[in-house]
Design a protein around this nucleic acid. Structure first.
Lengths: 154, 154
DNA sequence: ACATTATCTACTAAATTAGTCAAGAAAAAT
DNA sequence: ATTTTTCTTGACTAATTTAGTAGATAATGT
């Protein structure tokens, strides 16, 4: 029962923008450096986040990614649903979505259990926002690194 | 975030013994037939279940597997912990267990979230027993197939 | 003795995951 | 206009994990 790196990286990346960005666009290379994630790999993840309307992008010099909504409005479930492709622990929970369905459904007593488990998880990830992470991070004393790229122009 | 087949099969196998066994030992081939699982693969899973003290085994003719405890005492979490090797969604949640630890721990705000998620899941699977599955199955009208192998001796 | 059933160890094929690479297109700065 | 920066797209690959097979062995009941 483990979470893919895309989900873990995705959450951290969105958090990073919220925490270090200060409203400005944040570049992949900076997120990659701070979060210690391969920039090439992050690109792929941001593609999904962008398509899902979680972040917006801007090209060119001083471009980068920004949050499409405020940190209080972004819930972990939104991110994970995209990067993980759903939270249900077994495909048979939603046969209509996965395409294939199991012919044991009628007599399958475990299917409902898996479904419920997925919902518990979903509820939990729905209860946590990016803002919550930012607050926790401040409590941890993680320093904000705002406007780093501006330094060069002073 | 998906459950391995070992966990799904494991739960169904233990349930099968409880539901169709009626106290008697149940053989892998019968479980495999009823649950539509490869018997060879089931062997491996039963190895783990046996080592964990969830089932007991008996070799030779009329041998098979039996529950080590009553169905009310076997919780899904017991089975899944064994077949899945823990319920935490990321290795870094328990660095002491997985061996490797992450050097970002001090400033990692997501780690605690993953930990909590794993606990939610654990709590849920702790609240469901094999007995619960048996009751659900009766409600579904699944026929019990007790003492099938005895038929040949009548 | 013999058939039956679990036990143990090793092996393998397929799928998934995690990540790399290269070429291109848009936008801003100069 | 040109250059630079940065995102965009799609293909590719290596490593790992998963799911399953296979063969030989040990115990047990008849």
């Amino acid at each position: 029962m483990r979470l893919s790196t895309q989900s873990r990286y995705g959450v951290r990346a969105v958090f990073d923008i919220a925490y270090h960005g200060g409203g400005e666009g944040v570049q992949i290379k900076d997120i990659a450096r701070r979060q210690e994630i391969s920039p090439r790999y992050l690109e792929q993840i941001f593609q999904k986040l962008r398509d899902a309307g979680i972040v917006t992008s801007k090209r060119g010099p001083r471009g980068g990614y920004s949050l499409a909504k405020s940190p209080e409005e972004i819930r972990l479930v939104d991110i994970i649903r995209v990067t993980e492709g759903g939270l249900e622990p077994v495909f048979c929970v939603h046969p209509e979505k996965s395409g294939k369905d199991c012919d044991r459904v009628a007599k399958c007593v475990t299917r409902l259990i898996w479904k419920e488990a997925g919902e518990k998880l979903e509820d939990f990830f729905d209860s946590v926002t990016i803002q919550d992470l930012c607050e926790k991070s401040e409590l941890l004393g993680v320093q904000k690194e705002r406007g780093r790229s501006l330094m060069y122009y002073i």
